[in-house]
Simulated assay, not measured.
Amino acid sequence: MSHTALIPSHRKPRQSASKSALRAGVAGGVLSTIAVAGAAAPAQAEPVTQTIEMPTITAGLSTTVAASAEATQQVALDLETQAHEDAAATTAAKAAKKAKAEAVRKAEAKKKAEAAAKAKAEAAERASRTAERTTLSAPSGSSSSGSTSSASTASAPVSSSATGSAASVVSFVQMQVGDAYVPGGTGPNSWDCSGLVQAAFRTVGVDLPRVSQSQSTAGTQVGLGNLQPGDILYWGSAGSAYHVGIYVGGGQFVGAQNSSTGVVQRPLDYDMPTGAVRIL
C-alpha cells in the first residue's frame, strides 16, 4: 500500500457537467432579468442641492405698523378737528340768531319811536296851524300885537319879501314843514337838516354840497343882523357846522331840527344860529 493512500484528498469533488450547465443557466437568467428590470425602471431623480432663501416675514413689518398707527392717529385728529368745527359752527349760528333777533327788536323799537315822534310832531303841527288860523282871523286893529306874538309862535306865517329864486327856496322849505326828520333823509317826506337845504336850492338850479359843514362855507358870509330870505343859517363854526336851516324872513327860519319835532318853522331866538351864508 502506498504511503499516501490513507491521506484524504483536499480537493472538492468535481461537479457533474449537467449541474454546472444548470447553474450557469440559472445565473444567466437572473442577470438577464435584473438587466431588463433596470432598463425598464425610471431614472432616479438627482437630489436637490440648491438652497432656496425664504422671504423674511418680519421684513418691513415695523414700517407697516408705524404707518398704520400714524394713519389711525391722523383719522383721530381729523375727527377731533371736525368736532371742534361743528361746535364752533353751532355756537356761531346761535350767536348770529341771537344778534338777528336783537337787531329786529331794536329796529322795531326804533320804528315805534319814530312813529310816536312823528305822531307827536303832527299833533303839534295841527295845533300850530289851528293857532295860525286863529291869528289870521283876528281883527286888523290887533295886527301889531299879532305880529309881535307871531315871532314866538312855532310855524307862524311869515309874509316874506323874497323874490325870484330866494322866494322859491323859501316856499319850498315852508311846504315841507311837518315832514319827519330822519338822519340821512333827502325827501320827499323825510329829511335831515342839510338834505332839506340841498333840496331847496336844487329847485332853483343850485347844486349845494350834501353836508352841513360844506354848506356853511358854500357862499358869502353875512352877519345875522343883515339877513335876507333864502340865506343859509348854520350852527357851529363855518366849515365845521353841525346844523343848517333856511332864513325865511320876519325873524324866522325853517329847518329839519330833530326826530322829535321834524321840519319846523321857528323864530331865531328859539335856537340862535352862529352865522349865515348867502348863495343867491
Rank of each mutant, 00 (worst) to 15 (best):
168 S>L: 07
268 L>T: 01
20 S>G: 05
176 Q>R: 14
15 Q>A: 08
147 S>L: 03
200 A>N: 10
71 A>M: 09
196 L>A: 05
40 A>Q: 12
147 S>R: 09
146 G>C: 09
170 V>C: 06
111 K>I: 07
10 H>A: 12
75 V>I: 08
253 F>K: 02
188 P>Q: 06
115 A>P: 05
110 K>I: 10
146 G>H: 08
171 S>G: 03
79 L>P: 06
36 V>Q: 04
269 D>V: 05
84 H>S: 13
159 S>D: 09
257 Q>A: 09
267 P>N: 15
71 A>Y: 01
40 A>L: 07
201 F>C: 10
233 L>W: 00
263 V>E: 01
33 T>K: 02
267 P>I: 06
218 A>T: 12
119 A>P: 06
25 G>R: 13
251 G>V: 01
206 V>Q: 07
236 G>S: 00
45 A>R: 15
44 Q>G: 11
86 D>F: 15
116 A>Q: 14
30 V>M: 06
176 Q>T: 06
41 A>W: 14
210 R>A: 03
6 L>G: 03
159 S>N: 13
168 S>C: 07
4 T>V: 13
141 G>T: 13
242 Y>G: 01
243 H>D: 00
93 A>P: 12
184 G>S: 10
190 S>W: 05
31 L>Q: 08
232 I>G: 01
32 S>L: 15
60 G>F: 05
158 V>D: 02
172 F>I: 09
81 T>H: 11
2 S>I: 04
237 S>H: 04
101 A>W: 14
86 D>T: 14
144 S>W: 14
28 G>H: 03
124 A>C: 02
72 T>G: 06
148 T>M: 12
23 R>E: 12
49 T>S: 09
118 K>P: 04
57 I>Y: 15
192 D>T: 02
25 G>E: 08
181 Y>H: 01
111 K>G: 07
105 R>V: 11
137 S>I: 10
61 L>T: 02
1 M>G: 01
221 Q>Y: 11
12 K>V: 10
136 L>K: 07
227 L>C: 02
161 S>Q: 08
119 A>N: 02
274 T>V: 03
42 P>Y: 15
265 Q>S: 12
27 A>R: 11
122 E>W: 05
268 L>P: 03
120 K>Q: 07
131 A>S: 07
10 H>S: 14
120 K>G: 02
206 V>M: 09
28 G>M: 02
130 T>H: 12
115 A>E: 15
131 A>L: 08
267 P>Q: 02
193 C>W: 04
137 S>G: 13
187 G>D: 02
247 Y>W: 08
98 K>N: 11
27 A>Y: 11
204 V>S: 12
204 V>A: 12
123 A>E: 01
25 G>W: 06
161 S>W: 07
152 S>V: 04
74 Q>F: 08
116 A>H: 06
49 T>P: 04
263 V>P: 01
254 V>P: 05
261 T>W: 03
230 G>W: 00
22 L>W: 12
117 A>C: 10
280 L>N: 00
76 A>D: 06
98 K>H: 09
83 A>G: 14
199 A>H: 06
66 A>I: 08
102 E>M: 10
265 Q>A: 09
121 A>C: 05
244 V>C: 00
269 D>L: 08
21 A>E: 09
140 S>F: 09
195 G>C: 11
232 I>C: 01
266 R>S: 15
53 E>H: 15
113 A>W: 09
279 I>A: 04
